[in-house]
Computed example of a mutant assay.
Amino acid sequence: MNRMYNNFSKVNDLLDGKVSNYLDFMRGLAAILVLMEHLGSRLFVGYGYLQFPNAIVKLLYLLNLLGGPAVIVFFVLSGLFISRTVLKTIFENKWSWKSYLVNRLSRLYVVLIPALLLTFIADKIASNYFNYRWYTNDFTNIKDFIGNLFYLQTIFVRTYGSNAPLWSLSSEFWYYMLFPVFILIFRNQRKALKIVYSIIALGILFMIGQRINSYFLIWLLGTVVLFLPSIHLVKSKIIMSVSFLLVCIAMLLRPLINNGRLFIDHHTNNLFFVDLFIGLSFSFLIYSLLHGIEKKNKANKWFEKISKLLASFSFSLYLLHYPIINLVYYWGAKNGFTGLQPNLLSVFIEIIIVVLMCMLAFLFSRITEARTNFVRTFIMRSFDMFKVDKRKVKEMM
């Protein structure tokens, strides 16, 4: 146990160093890849089955197929950072459900609520003016809206409106809940609490279903990285290069298997094992970065600034982009747009749209993600004020 704690302490220290810039950059890049896949599906003719005029266009277009693998990257990064936070507070005997829930829920809701409202507005406009057929009846729409607020999409309700990327948010939230519950089952000395936490864990596992449960294993790969000891071999640049190559291969395998171009001759959504391969290879890359990069080396200031910038609006970009793409697509379709042929000009147009979407997401993040600490502080102070008022009432009685 002491050895595991020592490994965790070393990795926890390394995560505050130069490696954090690389992880921030990967998080931002993953959000952009998700945007590109959804944009490409609306922008290009015959998306996914095209003949390309040259290798450059083919390479650039290939980036449009990596949105699915990018979500797996999010899962592993989430597992790394969330479990780090939980374990650190538990090891230091500072664990508090109140602090944890305030931190997690404020981080999610400060972006989710505005994103859901924007989805409603964008879908309503597309439905009323541009032949977008989504709003079946008000009761179903309200139920989906409320269900998404409580992270029940894909479990009891649909993802809200056109905002399909919300599916992963329900998985993430329940992983946030499951992980500390599992840890507290083993760490708690009181049998009664062990039983309560065990019942809660079983209830969540039963509710979220087999598919979300299985992807929890991929999320936990980020946790495993926190406890792996450093070995001398990993400091080799060759190992770092191999780990990066494995990630590239794993990410490219997913769309090929998904579209029936590798191993099978038909489209399939049964991608758990290829997603597990992506998770394992990306975890290996994180491990090689953590233990292979010298912490004392100074970080490139420009790279650090770009990484932090991308990370600062990645969540907003993820939740914001699809309703806007959907609205613009149906507006274009009503005015005769039928898609672009893949060539250098159309890829350049896509790049311009991606940049514009990133700029919009950045502005959106300034009034959402950037206010997270303010919201957290306000909520915690409200709790403290409530406690003080409660004491005064007791004293008066």
Rank of each mutant, 00 (worst) to 15 (best):
I72P: 00
V34P: 01
P323D: 04
W167I: 06
A201D: 00
P323A: 12
V242F: 06
L77K: 07
N6Y: 15
Q189G: 13
K296D: 06
M4A: 14
E369I: 06
Y132M: 11
Y215Q: 07
F216M: 13
L152S: 04
Y100R: 10
F8N: 06
F303K: 08
G209E: 10
P229T: 03
G46V: 02
H232N: 13
L33S: 00
H321D: 12
L253K: 02
E172W: 01
W331K: 13
V347K: 00
Y109D: 01
S99N: 12
L246Q: 02
F362Y: 14
Y197H: 08
L80K: 02
F362D: 01
L50M: 10
L15P: 00
Y160V: 10
Y100C: 09
L360D: 03
L290P: 02
K298T: 02
Y318P: 11
G292I: 09
L152G: 03
L108Y: 08
R366S: 14
K296T: 03
I306H: 11
N163H: 05
L50G: 09
F337D: 13
F263D: 14
V11C: 10
I218S: 03
F374Y: 15
S314A: 07
T89R: 08
L80D: 03
K394E: 15
A31L: 04
K387N: 12
I286G: 02
K295E: 12
N21F: 11
L77A: 10
L340Q: 01
S314I: 09
T85K: 14
G332Y: 01
H267W: 15
I367S: 12
R27S: 03
L65F: 08
I200E: 05
G339W: 07
L226S: 08
K94W: 09
P342F: 00
R190A: 15
K94M: 10
S170T: 05
R190L: 12
S106L: 13
L280G: 04
F179R: 07
A192T: 14
E369T: 13
K88E: 11
N93G: 07
F284A: 08
E304C: 14
N269F: 10
V234P: 02
S316A: 07
P323R: 09
I72A: 01
N300S: 04
E172F: 00
A370H: 11
L65A: 11
L340R: 04
Q210K: 14
I142L: 08
V76S: 06
A115F: 03
N21S: 11
I146M: 08
Y5V: 13
N54F: 08
Y135N: 05
I125R: 05
E172H: 09
F75Q: 07
S9C: 13
G332F: 01
N300L: 11
K295H: 12
K298W: 00
P114Y: 10
F282W: 06
W174P: 01
L280Q: 04
S106M: 10
F383I: 14
T119V: 11
W95A: 04
M240W: 11
K194C: 10
A115H: 03
I208V: 01
S9P: 07
I155H: 02
W174I: 07
L166P: 08
W97K: 11
K10Q: 09
L356S: 06
R366I: 13
K88Q: 12
